[in-house]
């Protein structure tokens, strides 16, 4: 037993824990649970953990994956409860297992969104949103490491459906997880740039499933 993977949730207050802070939090949780997490050699040993798909700050997820290494065998069935007991509110481990696939096979991501309109959301508004995201192309300005550039996010949106409910429009989308990565926040940025009348007063996202290129659930 060496390389392992965790499936965990990050919801509620825990969504404000940043990626770097989450790495530290996980490392400390392993120490608290007295699990044999492996460290790198050298002067500044660091815990051998990595998040397959870092979760943007403020978003929830029920399908986070984390790879880590151990230096001794451990009880995989017991691990979720052991870790969940020592994690902050909002982080809960669902399973621990020896992964069969590499992280690079992860391709698509299902996201549920709640777009909140303070003046109420109508079915008509929901349809306009659906029309917007089904355009041929959605070219937006985005800042990347190489500076500002135009890019079409439409190919990164595979599925999209909406439903109005009270003051909210509920979205269900499948977007590209890697190469390219589509942060769901860009769905709102696109509105801001191209259809300002549709911009919600607040938007919240939750990852609900991850898939491979063939849309099979990725584990």
């Amino acid at each position: 037993m060496d390389k392992l993977r965790l499936l965990f949730e990050k919801t509620g207050r825990a969504v404000y824990i940043s990626h770097l802070d989450l790495m530290r939090t996980m490392q400390r949780a392993f120490l608290r649970a007295e699990l044999p997490l492996r460290y790198s050699e050298g002067f500044n040993p660091h815990a051998q953990i990595s998040m397959l798909l870092p979760l943007p700050l403020g978003q929830e997820s029920v399908c986070e994956l984390m790879d880590f290494r151990v230096y001794a065998d451990c009880d995989l069935a017991a691990m979720p409860a052991q870790l969940s007991a020592v994690l902050p509110e909002g982080i809960a481990v669902r399973s621990a297992y020896e992964p069969l696939r590499k992280g690079r096979d992860l391709k698509w991501l299902r996201v549920r969104g709640r777009f909140i309109y303070d003046n109420g959301a109508t079915q008509a508004l929901a349809e306009k949103l659906a029309q917007f995201y089904s355009r041929e192309s959605i070219v937006i300005l985005r800042r990347t490491k190489r500076g500002e550039g135009e890019s079409d996010i439409r190919p990164a949106i595979r599925e999209f459906s909406v439903q109005a409910q009270g003051s909210e429009v509920l979205l269900d989308a499948v977007v590209s997880a890697q190469e390219p990565t589509l942060n769901p926040e860009l769905l709102v940025s696109a509105l801001r740039q191209l259809a300002p009348e549709l911009v919600p007063d607040a938007a919240y996202f939750r990852r609900t499933a991850v898939y491979d290129a063939e849309m099979q659930e990725f584990r």
Partner: peptide, 18 residues
């Protein structure tokens, strides 16, 4: 919840720590 995404280091305002 609406404010938190706009401020620096929001984790310090929400509690929920171990």
């Amino acid at each position: 919840q609406r404010i938190l995404p706009r401020v620096q280091k929001p984790a310090r305002y929400v509690g929920g720590e171990y």
